[in-house]
Write a protein that binds this DNA or RNA. Structure first.
Lengths: 215, 215, 215, 215
DNA sequence: AATGAATGAGATTTCATTCAT
DNA sequence: AATGAATGAAATCTCATTCAT
C-alpha cells in the first residue's frame, strides 16, 4: 500500500501497453516476443501476465487503449462552425492534421488495424464507428449547410467529406511507410490541400473543357 | 506425364506465391505458418523449400512478384496527354482507379508494405521508386505543362500530384480495412473526385472569404 | 484484536491443510497451484509460506496431519474382543466401516497415497506401519485365538485379516472413483460382507464339489 | 513409404503412450514433463506433438488405450460356466487374478483413474461401464443361477459379486502402494480367497453365535 | 501476520527447417 | 518433384518462491 509500490502497480499496464506498441510497430504483432516488451520497461515476461492474460489479449487491449482516448477527444471537442466556409475549412484541416501529428499513436493504430484487419475485424469496425464515422458525419453536416447557404456546389456531401479526409489519411500512410526516411513538409502539404479544396485544380476562368461529362 | 509434371513444376512457384499472399494477408507475415501456405495448394511444407530457400526469401519474392508486373505495366503504358486538362484528369483518374480495382494484388501489396515497413524498408523504397514515384512524376509533369499553358494555378505540382493520388490511396486503405464488409460505390467516388479536382469545393462566384491566407 | 489475531494464527495451518487437501484431491498434487489453495481460505500465496516452507513440505504435513489422528484413534481405542467370534466380527466390521465413513479424510489420504506412491514411498510405509499393519495385526491375533478355540478353520490368519479388510478398502476406492455420482448402500454392503464372512458363499450342506483342490 | 519409415511411424503413437504411462506412473500426471516422455523413446518433445495435440489429450489417449484392450478382452472371452459352483469360483478367481498380474497396465490404469477421478470423471464412468460393470454382471448372473440351483444361500448377488472382486481390487491397490517393496505371495492369497468364499470364516459346525442378526 | 508485485526457472507448445525416402 | 517424420530453437505461458512494504 506504499505510495511507490501502488503507484507503480497502477502505471504498469500503461507502461506495458506503451512498450507493446513500440515493439509491435517495430517487429509486427506475430514476430514480437513478449520478453522484448518486458525488457523495454525493465521487468520480466512473467510480469506481463500479471496484467494481461495472453499476447492476444494484450494486443486487443492495446487497440482499445489507443482508440479510446482518440474517440474521447472527438466526443469532448465538438466541431465548431462559423458561417465562413473557408475559415471552417482551415479549421477542419488544422484539426485533422493536428490529430495526426500530435498523435504519434494514431498512426500506429492505423498500422495495426491495416495489418490485422482480417484477424480483428471487430476492432476495425469499432474504430470506424467511434471516430471515423463521427468525423465524416460532422464534416458532411457542415457541407450540407454550405450547400444550403449557396457556398458549395450541391453534391454528395458524405463523399465530399471523404475527399477532405483522404489526403490526411494518405499522409498518414506515407508516414507509416517511410518513417523518418522521407521528411514531409507538412505546411506545404496543408497549404496545397487547402488551395485545391477551395478552388480545385483549375485556374479561375479557364474553360473546363469539352471532355467533362457533368452528372 | 512429363508434360504435366514439367508444367506443374513451372507453375509451382506462382502457386506458392499466390497462396502465400492469401495467408500473409489473413494472418500477417510473422504469424503465418508455411504449412498453411502449403496446404492451400495441396502440397506439404517441404515442397516450398524446393522453390524458396526460406520464409523470408519467400516473402521477398512475393513482394517482388507483386510489384514487378505493376511497375512493368507502368513502364509499358506511358501516360498519354492531350491539351485538354479536364480530359487528361479523367484519363488519370480512370487509370488510377483501374489500377486498384483490377489489381486485387495491389491492395495486398500495400498491406504487406504497411505491415512490415519497419522490417523490410528496402521493399518500401523499391516500390516507391518503381511505380509510385513514376506516377507522381508523370502527373506533376502534366501539371507543369498545365501551369505553363495557363490551365492550372501555379503551385507545387509534386504536391498537387499527391492530392490527385491521395483519394485513390485512401480508397485502397478503406478497402483493406473493411474487405467486403462495406461496399464502395466506385462510380460516385470517381465522379466526386473529378468534380472536386476540377472546381474545388466552392461554388463558382462564391466569395472565398476573408480567412484565406495566401501563400 | 490480539485475541482474534492469535486465534486466527493458531488455526491458519489447519485451514491451509484443509484447503490443500481439497485442492490436491481435485487437481492432483503436481497440478495444484498454491494460489488456489490460498484463495480457498481468502488469503494470498505468500501467507502459506509463513506456515509451510514449500509446496512439498505442505504436502508432507498434509499426509501427516491426515494419518496422525487416525493412528492415534487406533492406539487409543484398543480392539476389545469377546469369546463370541460372530459378535467380534460384527464389531470389527462396524469399526472398519465407521472408520471410513466418519473419516472423509481417510479416503482422500488413500487417494494421495495411491497417486503419489512412487514419489513419496516413505509416506506409504509410514502409514502402513502406523495403522494398517496394527489393524491387520489386531485382527489376525483374534483369528489366531479363534483357531485355538476351534471357532475358525486353521489358515494363514494374516491373509485372512486382509480379506476382512479388503471389501472396506474396495468400497473406499469405489467412493474415490465415483464420488457422489454413484450412491452406495452401506448397510446392505455390510450385511452382505458379514454373511459371506460367516458362512462363505455356499449353502450349508451343499456339496463343495470335486473341483476343490485342498491346500 | 519405405518399410522402415512407415513402420516406425505406425508404431510411434504406441511407443509414446507406453513411455507416457511409465512417466505418469513414476511422476504423476501433473509433474511429468513431455520432454522426459520423449527422451524415453529417443525422440524430442516436438515429435510428441506430431501425434498428440496436447499433454491432456495424450493423457486421455493413454486412458483409452489402456482400457480399450481390457474391455475388448472381456468382450471376446465370455465367461463360461459349468454346473459346479466351486469349479466356477476357481475359474473366476483365476481369471480375475490373471487379469491383474498379466496386465501390469491394468494396475496403472487404476492408479490414473484414482488420481485423476475428479478431473476426468468421464473416464471413470467409461471404464466402469466397459468392463467393471460387465464383470459384476457376469458374476451375479452365475450367482443367481447358483441360488436357483440351491448351491448358494439367497442374497443380493450383485453385492456378492463385489465381494468376490474386492480382494482382487484390494491386492491391486496394495501393489500400487508398495510396488516392489513388499512382495505378495499371490498363490497363498488366491487360496485364502477361495477358502473364505467357499466356507466363510467359520469352522463347519461351529455355532454361528447369538450376535448374528439375520436379515 | 499478511500482502501481492515481481521473479525466473521451467513447463508446454509452435514451427521453420532438414533430410532420408 | 515431393513427402512428412523429425528436429530444436525459440516462443508463450505457468507458478513456486521471494521480499519490500
Amino acid at each position: 500500500m506504499s505510495g511507490i509500490r501502488s503507484k507503480q502497480k497502477a502505471e504498469r499496464p500503461e507502461q506495458i501497453l506503451e512498450a507493446a506498441l513500440d515493439e509491435f510497430r517495430k517487429t509486427g504483432y506475430g514476430a514480437t516476443r513478449l520478453e522484448d516488451i518486458a525488457k523495454r520497461i525493465g521487468v520480466t515476461k512473467g510480469t506481463i501476465y500479471l496484467y494481461f492474460e495472453s499476447k492476444e489479449k494484450l494486443f486487443e487491449s492495446l487497440i482499445t487503449s489507443l482508440s479510446a482516448p482518440l474517440a474521447q477527444e472527438f466526443q469532448e471537442n465538438e466541431w465548431e462552425w462559423t458561417d465562413d466556409i473557408a475559415a471552417d475549412l482551415d479549421y477542419i484541416l488544422s484539426r485533422l492534421y493536428n490529430f495526426i501529428f500530435e498523435h504519434h499513436k494514431f498512426r500506429e493504430l492505423l498500422r495495426l488495424l491495416v495489418s490485422e484487419a482480417d484477424r480483428f475485424p471487430q476492432f476495425v469496425d469499432e474504430n470506424y464507428s467511434e471516430f471515423i464515422a463521427p468525423i465524416l458525419q460532422s464534416l458532411s453536416k457542415r457541407f450540407d449547410a454550405g450547400i444550403a447557404a449557396g457556398q458549395i456546389e450541391p453534391t454528395d456531401t458524405h463523399e465530399l467529406a471523404r475527399f477532405v479526409v483522404a489526403p490526411v489519411l494518405s499522409l498518414n500512410i506515407m508516414s507509416l511507410l517511410f518513417g523518418n526516411r522521407r521528411a514531409i513538409d507538412c505546411d506545404t502539404f496543408i497549404s496545397t490541400h487547402r488551395k485545391v479544396l477551395l478552388r480545385g485544380l483549375l485556374k479561375p476562368g479557364a474553360k473546363e473543357g469539352e471532355g467533362g461529362q457533368s452528372e
